[in-house]
Design a protein around this nucleic acid. Structure first.
Lengths: 349, 349
DNA sequence: CGTTTACTTTACAACGTTGGAAAGACTCGG
DNA sequence: CCGAGTCTTTCCAACGTTGTAAAGTAAACG
């Protein structure tokens, strides 16, 4: 079928090892031989078989990325950033979708498919802290997110508590006092929802504001429809509010949608802030004030960390650094849905 | 490092071929031997090395998907659907981003990386019909989109002209007469922009409406910002209009944003229709009437076609079907931004 | 009880590549 | 013109797996 080293060697009239040497820039090759080989390569259109190279060298030049679902914009943008960062290092990315299902997540971790890659960047959503032992896999692994922590692993994440607190404080500083939340997970302590809710409560406490359970909207899926439904629940409670903190942007966008249906104006009656700084936050109507949690930095750092770990593993380096938790810097991106200086106070139905 | 067939064979006290036979469900194995081997596999946690298997068998169990950019929602959702469809067949997907850059697209086609996969699903954006010869690659290839056509290849696409015509006719049927377009590409005939613009013109012609160049907003990148900019250009022309056809959803959403800034109400003053039926179209404010071009069907069909082609290639089947162009069915999804029965007529700027 | 037949296991080679080290060729000094 | 040193090329084996075919074993038959 395909052209192999043997074919090139035959055409060039040398041994296959010489061809291999040319390809791998072995220094001691006579110029004449080299050009002869290069000409044969050109003529035959030879391309190295990366599968064979991978088998022989033990390095695949590929990593795996497991995320819940590419139809969730956060993960789509994360995946895009990971692929771009890997590409810059000449590495390709195999993408798996887990759907956030714990069983599927565990299955991916154990899957023999990973023998085709050098390591995994794993963004779990369904598994729990008690599943941490399942993370002790025989290949380099970098964790993302805040679902599971394990001191044995490199972990790249964001400052959820601080960032959520900053978002809430931003609303408070703008004059809001009754701040609803959408996207909470019942009883969750660890995880994006738990941490961000904690940050929210810390901000309230620090400002001497009371936490009102009626202002918390719950939803498991962080889809726009979930945000809409949680917002409706809060409205149904009848407690007045003048701001909404969407625990992520899609939730906030879904919530904005419901507010508008309910006749509440954003930001006139209700300020809305999100979390993630998705592309679409910039172009929603009104544009969404949000937290940029450092997604690109996370992608880049995750790839760099994984590649360093892979290199260390091949060198069997004893001086490899300890696994670490690296946290991205965040910043508030002010847009229309929550101006720094808000005005009116609404009394919602 | 990893456990190999040799290790299992040693522990089980059999030859490696017997272990291989057990794994591959070879029928003639004594039950006692089989269980002995299975126990050793279990005990050692053996996992087959897919790289070696792939080298030996010539089948990688992986396909490549090349799309412009995952931060474009259409391609993110497409990629998600492709991965899901492949997963159902036990195939993994390696995702490449071309950025829509012609040079990069050609590079991906020729890249030795593809030797790690069994075939490619390619969604070009930058290359042109004249680049078609570059598509004659030595591995199975399925084309998506409408940038390049080639009778030598399987191609899965959508009914751009008909669907765009239907979208325009939908606006006309709702009572609109001055329909702007955003997202056109200067001089393009072949390609999403060209085809959809053609459908738009066909609808105008059929309805006896005049085509007004001042109502066409151009933008190369089909980002939201491009839609916004194109909409501003149209507004700047000063020609009145009562509807906007965004050549895709993100363009339409960007345009809606600008309309609102300009004080025009959607759909009261201006109806807006998009194209793609992205998740977010359902939750924008107002929700976006759009065309569902059959994205999931396209993903599923592309994967099935590619896998069939791969199988045919390995069997060296002479009875393989001719390459074909398969087109998805489309439908109009009516939402708020363009109701079937529109009312007022606006006179823009 | 020898022989055919069917079942079960194994030896070997090969997929395409590269590391290690030996073999060959050339250059230079004496 | 020889030996030492350097440059250049080749040979061999191995990465982990599976196809082919042969070898070995047990059951069945006459």
């Amino acid at each position: 079928m395909a052209v192999t080293l043997h074919d090139v060697a035959r055409v060039a009239g040398v041994s296959i090892k010489t061809v291999s040497n040319v390809i791998n820039d072995y220094p001691h090759i006579r110029p004449a031989t080299k050009s002869k080989v290069e000409q044969a390569i050109e003529e035959l259109g030879y391309q190295p078989n990366l599968t064979a190279r991978s088998l022989r060298s033990g390095r695949a030049g590929a990593i795996a990325l497991a995320v819940p679902d590419l139809s969730l914009p956060y993960f789509a943008e994360l995946a895009g950033a990971v692929i771009a960062a890997a590409e810059a290092a000449g590495i390709v990315v195999l993408v798996e979708q887990t759907g956030g299902d714990p069983a599927r997540e565990l299955e991916v971790l154990r899957s023999p498919r990973l023998t085709m890659t050098d390591g995994l960047i794993f963004s779990p959503l369904g598994i729990e802290q008690s599943d941490a032992p399942a993370l002790r896999v025989p290949y380099p692994l970098v964790l993302l997110g805040e679902r599971v922590f394990d001191p044995e692993h490199d972990h790249v994440s964001m400052r959820n508590v601080e960032a959520a607190r900053a978002a809430t404080e931003f609303l408070i500083a703008s004059g809001r006092r009754r701040i609803a939340v959408v996207g909470a997970h019942e009883g969750e302590v660890i995880g994006s929802a738990g941490f961000r809710l904690q940050g929210y409560r810390e901000a309230l406490d620090a400002a001497g504001l009371e936490f009102d359970p009626d202002l918390v909207g719950y939803t498991a899926p962080w889809h726009r429809s979930g945000g809409a439904q949680a917002m409706r629940d809060v409205l149904a409670h009848g407690a007045p509010f003048d701001a909404v903190f969407g625990l992520n942007d899609t939730l906030a966008l879904g919530a904005m949608r419901v507010l508008q249906e309910a006749g509440l104006r954003v930001p006139h009656d209700v300020s809305v802030i999100g979390f993630d700084d998705l592309d679409e936050a910039e172009y929603s109507i009104p544009s969404l004030t949000t937290v940029d949690p450092g997604r690109r930095w996370i992608a880049r750092t995750a790839v760099e960390t994984l590649l360093a770990r892979i290199t260390a593993a091949t060198l069997d380096a004893a001086d490899a650094p300890q696994p670490a938790l690296q946290l991205a810097e965040f910043r508030i991106v002010e847009r229309e849905s929550a101006p720094a200086a808000a005005s009116a106070i609404a009394t919602a139905v």
